[in-house]
Nucleic acid binder design. Sequence first.
DNA 1: GTCTATACCTCGATAGAC
DNA 2: GTCTATCGAGGTATAGAC
Lengths: 211, 211
Amino acid sequence: MSYPPGFRIERERTRPEKAGDVARSKAIQAAIELFSTSGYNKTSIAEVALRTGLSQSGLLHHFPNKTALLTAVLEQREKEDSEFLFGEGEPPLGWAAFDSLVALVARNSTRPEWIGLFVRISAEATEASHPANRWMLDHYSSVRAWLTRALEHGKENGEVIPDAPVDAIVRNTIAVLDGLQQQWVAEPHSMSMVAELRVYLHQLHTVWGTA
Amino acid sequence: MSYPPGFRIERERTRPEKAGDVARSKAIQAAIELFSTSGYNKTSIAEVALRTGLSQSGLLHHFPNKTALLTAVLEQREKEDSEFLFGEGEPPLGWAAFDSLVALVARNSTRPEWIGLFVRISAEATEASHPANRWMLDHYSSVRAWLTRALEHGKENGEVIPDAPVDAIVRNTIAVLDGLQQQWVAEPHSMSMVAELRVYLHQLHTVWGTA
DNA sequence: GTCTATACCTCGATAGAC
DNA sequence: GTCTATCGAGGTATAGAC
């Protein structure tokens, strides 16, 4: 394998990853699939390796240990979600923030692994010693901060009535999202998360919105 | 140790369990504590045995295997919850059903193990091969059936407006309950589940109730 | 960068003595 | 009813050859 002069530099400009990281990406994809159905604890790196087309040690050449694999998976999830939600610009505020959460759920409904991944990992990670514990706490904290800002902006805007109980609305909204995802993971064909969410948002608008 | 005549019979009349089942109860209690923090998969029967004051084999004399231990734990939970919710009588209907769910959460807030147990087990059990999978599906199905009946009763009663979207309200309510419990397990001192739930129920009354 | 081999755990369950 | 001993499976991680 010989490359024309400048090839490496060209590649590095379009794709920042090194060439050898193809296996890495495949491994992350395999890990997502397995974590999303069996959770982190129950998934063995041997099986991730198998699906990647590597031996166990081959896989561990790319990730020093199982935790590093999990970290890579979570980083990818965070990246894709926030790109979808915020893109390059500013996060939506007011009721628009809540609408974009519905859009995210709608999109993730077509990628069941992402829902399963979140449901399993975030439940496991409620244990303080779980490697994703800090990730989970940070994740919730940042979603809460965003939705809180969104509602306060809505109050300044006149979209939201002044005495709406911001904290409770934020926590309940996150709870509905998480809870629906869990029900959906248990029985995917029995319901439409988006339909249920629209009812919830309708309640929010009716009670706390300015008609 | 000698007992007066009739003692055994007296005991058997008041408590149906055999005398040897003290260890059994202790084991179930220990299992609840461990399952509630580490989940079922990650908990070893050896540690349950340790907390019970038995060797691993000693514990397995009372339960044929780990699954049987889980079953005993779930049966106890189901029993205590439904005794609290329904007692000897009929399940509450109409909005009263939702109020009694808040009462259950309020009571369980004082027994964190029960919240943790539910959060961990029900998330693990979304995997079809998990020993609690059927239990979880049945549990959700029966809660849905009860709340659905409650809302339909409320419509006949005039408590609930006729075109309230029953299925969505039921699923969203369960989602809020589950989601809040998960947030609470992650950071117990950061919130009051009952306070958030009251806001949610207020929305329900305002939007779907007959003023 | 990928492999085989292996060290070293932990776990669930069984056998059999007391 | 409780114990010790042990088996066998499956897991993470490391060493070292290619």
